[in-house]
Write a protein that binds this DNA or RNA. Structure first.
Length: 136
DNA sequence: GCCAACGTTGGC
DNA sequence: GCCAACGTTGGC
């Protein structure tokens, strides 16, 4: 079981929308590093859902429902997508400020590489986040 | 709205 | 294959 962090601007696709949809195709990734992370996802891996720009906090988790396959919205055919389901809202969203303040979390990949939209999360980081979010 | 970081593009 | 120019992302 691996953990990931996926980012979305709430204006583009929010967690509230995810909760309405129950599951969704994670399309639109156009960055090789992010796409490689999508490729590495296995069924039932857990992804933390982060709101960038507006909110700047982890608002919940989703679960991988379908592994990497071609993204029909990519006309070049270079990039793929996964499908995620089962949104679970954080009881307490975890803000970026809190993450940067936390000894374990401040070294997370997505903090260091702020532009990477899909990034790996270590087991220790995941455990900490789940606890802080009230999802443990 | 600004700006730093950084990925991508295209000329050579 | 290098590198400058450019575009985009995202925090502040």
């Amino acid at each position: 079981m691996a953990y990931w962090l996926i980012k979305s601007e709430p204006d583009a696709y929010s967690f509230a929308q995810m909760q309405k949809d129950k599951k969704t195709g994670w399309t639109g990734v156009r960055n090789y590093q992010a796409a490689n992370n999508l490729k590495a996802m296995q069924l039932s891996d857990v992804c933390f859902f982060y709101h960038s720009n507006e909110g700047k906090e982890i608002v919940g988790t989703v679960e991988v429902n379908r592994t990497y396959h071609p993204d029909p919205t990519d006309e070049t055919g270079k990039f793929g997508m996964v499908e995620v389901k089962n949104p679970k809202a954080a009881k307490t969203p975890l803000t970026l400020a809190a993450i940067k303040d936390h000894a374990t979390l401040k070294n997370m990949a997505f903090v260091k590489q702020s532009r990477l939209s899909v990034s790996p999360v270590s087991a220790a980081e995941a455990k900490t986040i789940l606890k802080l979010c009230g999802l443990a």
